[in-house]
Design a protein around this nucleic acid. Structure first.
Lengths: 203, 203
DNA sequence: TCTTTTTTGGAGTTGACACTCCATTTTTGT
DNA sequence: ACAAAAATGGAGTGTCAACTCCAAAAAAGA
């Protein structure tokens, strides 16, 4: 990931991926600070020095984890996420997100949001990485809402960009409260209220 | 704070408060894991052993910090928070929250939410403490909305309890995105959308 | 005042964690 | 096959953080 990294063989690439995947899983559950490089080594089944062969330092690894989790979150919401341009699609997406939380017993919150909250002030240099992850998510939502407005499913006064930001905020807040309460009620209430708001903006 | 703690003199109480306040400030900025007991000692101007005289261990101190931050957040929103029973009051409260973030340059997010996100999985035994903090906040919002409905400012079908949960979620998500983007747009969009939703539920 | 309890200071201990070094094995490219 | 480059194993290092101990000072209560 660092600039002048030597090139990787297929085996090296696989090992690197294994390290990132293991680190992502551990950091999702225990947080970045709560995950030691030893933990990652053990989980990935690599020897102690491997991490520093593939990553400059722990921060470098965390950066890779942020990118990995962003990809995973967006992929987990496909194909719905790229077609959020009807109320039906939005409602189906709402169900998907709520179901995902239920399946993991409301543990862990949002993989991107948790990283963001932990790193925003402690590692300011990584804040842009998290922001970029959120931007990709936001863009997908925004595209759907823009399509709705262009098609005439939303009134002209409705601002799809602001609604997308508000909807993503609702998801994040709902996920946080859901994680802390161990109950999806907050996530459902937040999403339903926001989707009802959008529905009320039909012509 | 622990059960069988010996009783404190006035001076002891003051020292304890100084430790909690210093720890709260540091943990708000650097996170719990990023704040060492040495840091707290220095900031509070106490000798190294003081913390363990007043608190059993670091977790005990964190518990006190959660309670302290909950009090601080609720106090900072008074007197508006206890009278959120008109749209005007809700809009004024929205301004207050946004202004507070602006004043701190969007740094730090929600004092309760940040703690919750960091501790929910790493220290499961403290999750109920955070949940209790949120519950107090939620209750204040809920009371206002219930009053609105009882007075007839909200339709009978409107569920004040769900709306309160959704509104708190919007605040939390908005604060998180605001912290990461260093821009209050997300918080404003989330709050405005949720308040518009509530306004649309007038008879 | 005089005993008891609380508060304070500071040195010390233990363990964990990020990171390094170097030798060995495996893979690559010719 | 054979040099060069990459991947791996494992021992080791220095730092820092949580927590302990004990003795001295200050306050409380009688």
């Amino acid at each position: 990931m660092t600039a002048g990294e030597v090139r990787l063989t297929r085996k090296g690439q696989a090992t690197r991926n294994r390290i990132v995947a293991a680190a992502a899983e551990l950091m999702f559950v225990r947080g970045v600070a709560g995950t030691s490089t030893d933990d990652v080594q053990l989980a990935a089944g690599v020897s102690p020095s491997q991490i520093y062969h593939y990553f400059g330092d722990k921060k470098d690894l965390v950066r890779a984890v942020i990118a990995h989790q962003t990809d995973a979150v967006l992929a987990g919401q496909q194909p719905l996420l790229s077609r959020l341009d009807t109320m039906e699609a939005l409602r189906a997406w709402r169900e998907l997100i709520v179901d995902m939380q239920r399946q993991r017993a409301c543990e862990g919150g949002c993989p991107i949001g948790s990283l963001g909250s932990e790193l925003a002030e402690t590692c300011p240099e990584m804040r842009p990485d998290v922001a970029a992850g959120f931007a990709r998510w936001e863009a997908a939502i925004r595209d759907g809402l823009r399509t709705m407005r262009a098609r005439g499913d939303l009134r002209q006064e409705a601002d799809p960009d602001l609604l997308a930001l508000a909807l993503l905020s609702a998801v994040q807040g709902g996920l946080l409260l859901t994680q802390i309460r161990r109950d999806t009620a907050a996530l459902e209430a937040a999403l339903d209220a926001m989707l009802d708001r959008i529905a009320s903006l039909a012509p």
